[in-house]
Design a binder for these strands. Structure first.
Lengths: 187, 187
DNA sequence: CTAATCCTTTAACATAAGATAAATAATTAC
DNA sequence: GTAATTATTTATCTTATGTTAAAGGATTAG
């Protein structure tokens, strides 16, 4: 469990005490491909960091499986629409490759915010950047064609095709799998 | 300048000292319809609160004016993709009705975070909720038809038609003005 | 290793939305 | 109040993506 603190360092440096306090509320999960890390219907009280592997957040809309987002090695994944509101999540987190995940107990983390402003600041900054990424993604969705979005995704995340089935990429891009197949066939 | 603190109260209560510190870094702007509150190209260092009026964030994509978001009375508006990264913003803020705006100096605000953890917490929570709204908006864009998105917008913000030209609503919805006209004609 | 299941592609047809142009309608400037 | 400008609608044609169905590949379970 070293690299999570390297990741944190990118946002805000922490005192040794703060690092120890965080370590105490983390656990490591080894989990296999296609398993559900978290399922539907409960209020999300965990933030995950991916040491190794790949995951996605997804939900069902009219019975169809829709991928909201992917997360890859050395990144955070959380169902923020539940974590930050306390509402039960309609979304689940599925593992897409055999993974090693750090689970951060968010209930306890939020308590640490009172004792360690540096920890509150760290997560404030992490989620500010995630927020900016989401704002930028809207721009991509609204004014690029499906083909442009696909190409952009591949160049941002060149290994995604090895890690993630195309059907999940299609729903993430907001198109059907048939459309994605057509787009790929053009090349 | 009363209602901004009522708004803050929804997120986190502040001590009198913290309120005073914030008041010191705020100024009130009276600004007329169609004026630009902030223009393109500079790093965004201001967070705005709308006491009265309406505003939008917009940018040009291939020469076409695109509305990224609207903000109405008693809400915050900021170009977060610049504010949180320090990058110059490609976006501008335009006033859509004669407005009264509170401008919060973000550079000084971020300094207050060191002295007043309660202020850092306040803005953390404000932007967490804004982040959640943005995540939910992606869901709307990706899996609803333009007609559904239009109807949803009207029911969320019934007065928008009195405040905002349809062309801005069209680009916000991710469609052309001609398509929006067609959708409205069906009824 | 084989069968069963799941994933991806291809084809044919349907439809929503884009592009362009022109006609009205509404607003703004003088 | 009128002209000029800007916003909105309507019409026509085009195109990207959706829908459904079926076939071919790949992966998984036993």
């Amino acid at each position: 469990m070293k690299s999570i603190f390297q990741y944190f360092q990118l946002y805000n440096s922490l005192s040794k005490e703060a690092e120890n306090a965080i370590t105490e509320i983390c656990s490591i999960i080894e989990i296999k491909k296609n398993q559900e890390l978290q399922t539907f219907g409960h209020t999300c009280k965990t933030i995950y960091y991916i040491n190794k592997g790949t995951a996605r957040i997804y939900y069902y809309k009219d019975g169809i499986d829709i991928t909201e987002s992917f997360a890859f090695e050395n990144n955070i994944i959380a169902r923020v629409e539940s974590l930050f509101t306390g509402n039960p999540s309609r979304k689940a987190i599925q593992i897409l490759e055999d993974s090693e995940i750090v689970a951060i107990n968010a209930t306890q983390l939020f308590k640490l915010y009172d004792t360690y402003p540096e920890i509150e600041r760290l997560f404030r900054k992490i989620f500010e950047v995630a927020y900016v990424d989401t704002v930028n993604r809207i721009e991509g969705i609204q004014f690029h064609s499906a083909e442009e979005r696909y190409n952009a995704l591949i160049s941002e995340e060149p290994n995604i095709l090895k890690k993630v089935p195309l059907k999940h990429i299609a729903s993430y891009l907001g198109i059907t799998q048939v459309s994605l197949s057509r787009i790929r066939a053009i090349k």
